[in-house]
Design a protein around this nucleic acid. Structure first.
Lengths: 352, 352
DNA sequence: TCCGTCGAGGGAACCGGTTGCCACGGTGTT
DNA sequence: AACACCGTGGCAACCGGTTCCCTCGACGGA
């Protein structure tokens, strides 16, 4: 077995041509596969290709207009379970459609996001997918609108996946899931058990995902003619540590509540641990619900009642919709439904 | 505010040159930033750039030899928590070093892996990182050795991250963590509590990660002069469902054991639920330990005793080492340590 | 036998950048 | 006033491919 190790000089199409005794165009045609080439020539070329272990430079092909298209996605932190599932959906669908997949995690830094989008424009990415909620400020809309225009004018397309839509007119594809509706149904379920003081836990105060779920929480109360105590809305972020800390604080402050609805399952997990640490039982003393239905939710004890979100499907749909989009066609805005999955963590409030 | 929407014709450097009344070379030099250009000219060029919203085509730059380098990583499924953390480390370090990051998930299909590596060779990626364990067969070594050679001859580099090393001579960088050592210490801890029949749960039978942990399990027994019952080794895969199913089966089969060591925390989570469902308490009736120390481990009830693996650091190190590698230098093989983190899920066996 | 046709392959322009080399014009020096 | 020099910017070659267009030779039919 001969291994041609160490010759770090990647060979060009001209090297192959020379070795096969043909012109570069012929090699290109053999490799392209469509143009008629005699069997003899094809054989010589293929042998040269094999001997040199030649692969055509994808960048050069791209410049010439025949490259593998690329698709980029940007998220805050791939480590979060819901992000990971969206990412998975994006990646699966992209490769299924023959696209390469570039990732970037921003760690929540807007500058990273801008820089990366600019790079993607330079890469001539077919689409750039922004994954996950964010703070919905006028500045956000303005900035993102500019990105959308900028990408559109470069023949690319911006997709917001699980992120709030922009002002109409922005050339953008939006795929969302129903935060408000899911939370509404979930909280309605909690209230139906008889709870009247429900703590809403975690989520960044300005973050659209948290905000949407909060709206659902409020709407469910109103639908029953209830006005929730503003003191029962606690903010932090989306980590289990935040859930843990916030729950500890709420208990220390002796807040009056019989149920907890967490912004995410992660937050719920931390909260659950804090509850256990305080010697409280769930759902005996306190009921608890989450949001996202991450795989772990059913392994918490008690198994967590939560809202299922089709994250992977969301990612898939994002790329499919983006790539289907023909310039000039109306912008798409899809809203995916969610459903609550009832497990064991929500029960009746303790009788006094 | 004027938005030049719709002109999907990305402008070239020559368009900018024409608009600024200079040559393409001058534009290139202005944008390059090093070559001396008069302030007046620079101003005109920059204005034209702004007006056209021009960004140089990264692929063309790459062909000319001045592109942003790219780095690729391949994993089975980004959805697994440990994979996600490695991916995060890889991505962070890559962008810190100014590299673009391509992902591919193989869903465990070897053909995907091969195809993708070939594409990366075409992309002239600086390095390709294979993330996560695999079945360590002769076929694997042969195939991967070929990939390594092939990449090396293209000036790229193959990195195995959390994956078994190849035969010496393969141009490959290996970053591993100590599966055997971690499992050894963990199982030693379990045995020290007095357990004598310890169930080893889950993990694909041929998978290096599971195998390493299994070796540690066996070694810890031998160190105490114990010979574990082969019937106590149960295989499946790395999901929580596998853990759940396997545990149910073990209970149904009335296997005799007082402790369970799961191949991963995910498996442990499923197993824990199965134990709870059977009315068993942990660690009162059965002790349970995991491996990976995923964030959720502490939110299981009881909090899971497990082995911490520096996954993110692993990913970081993989890219740093790969990019530092100068051709011809000896191949690196790093082994990162792990440590057990003792929580509440392991206790003394029940007294009869 | 001659001509038309067709299949195969070569030459050169092109994709969109970068950069070595050279020309040009203005200023400082002797 | 002549000269050298330096700052500036254009031309053209090059990176590694693709593809249009054209030529060349073989073959078949009249």
């Amino acid at each position: 077995m001969t291994r041609k190790s160490g010759d770090a000089s990647r060979s060009t199409i001209r090297d192959v041509a020379a070795r096969a005794g043909v012109s570069a165009s012929t090699v290109s045609r053999v490799l392209g596969g469509v143009y008629p080439v005699s069997a003899a020539t094809r054989g010589r070329v293929m042998r040269a290709v094999r001997e040199l272990d030649y692969v055509a430079d994808a960048r050069a092909k791209a410049v010439a207009g025949v490259g593998t298209p690329t698709l980029a996605f940007v998220l805050e932190d791939i480590t979060g379970p819901s992000f990971a599932h969206m990412a998975h959906g994006v990646e699966r669908e992209a490769t299924r459609l023959g696209h390469l997949c570039l990732v970037c995690s921003t760690e929540g830094d807007v500058r990273h996001e801008l820089e990366f989008v600019e790079m993607m424009r330079a890469q001539r990415a077919a689409a750039v997918i922004l994954v996950g909620g964010t703070a919905d400020t006028p500045e956000y809309r303005e900035r993102t609108h500019r990105m959308a225009d900028s990408l559109a004018s470069a023949g690319s397309r911006l997709v917001l996946c699980g992120r709030p839509p922009l002002d109409p007119g922005a050339p953008v594809t939006v795929i969302e899931y129903d935060n408000e509706g899911g939370a509404y149904t979930l909280v309605a379920h909690v209230l139906a058990q008889g709870h009247r003081r429900v703590l809403f836990l975690g989520g960044r105060a300005d973050h659209t995902t948290a905000l949407g779920r909060e709206r659902g929480y409020l709407a469910a109360h109103r639908a029953r003619g209830l006005t929730p105590d503003p003191a029962l809305l606690l903010h932090g972020d989306f980590t289990r540590d935040a859930g843990h800390r916030l729950m500890q604080q709420a208990l220390k402050d002796d807040l009056d509540f019989t149920a907890v609805v967490a912004a995410t399952d992660m937050v719920a997990a931390g909260a659950l641990t804090a509850l256990h640490e305080a010697g409280l039982t769930v759902p005996g003393d306190v009921s608890l619900a989450g949001y996202d239905d991450i795989p772990f939710a059913r392994d918490l004890h008690p198994a967590l009642t939560t809202v299922h979100v089709p994250y992977e499907e969301l990612g898939r749909l994002a790329v499919r919709t983006a790539l289907d989009h023909t310039p000039g066609a109306p912008d798409e805005h899809l809203l995916l439904g969610t459903h609550v999955v009832v497990r064991d963590s929500v029960g009746a409030p303790p009788s006094r």
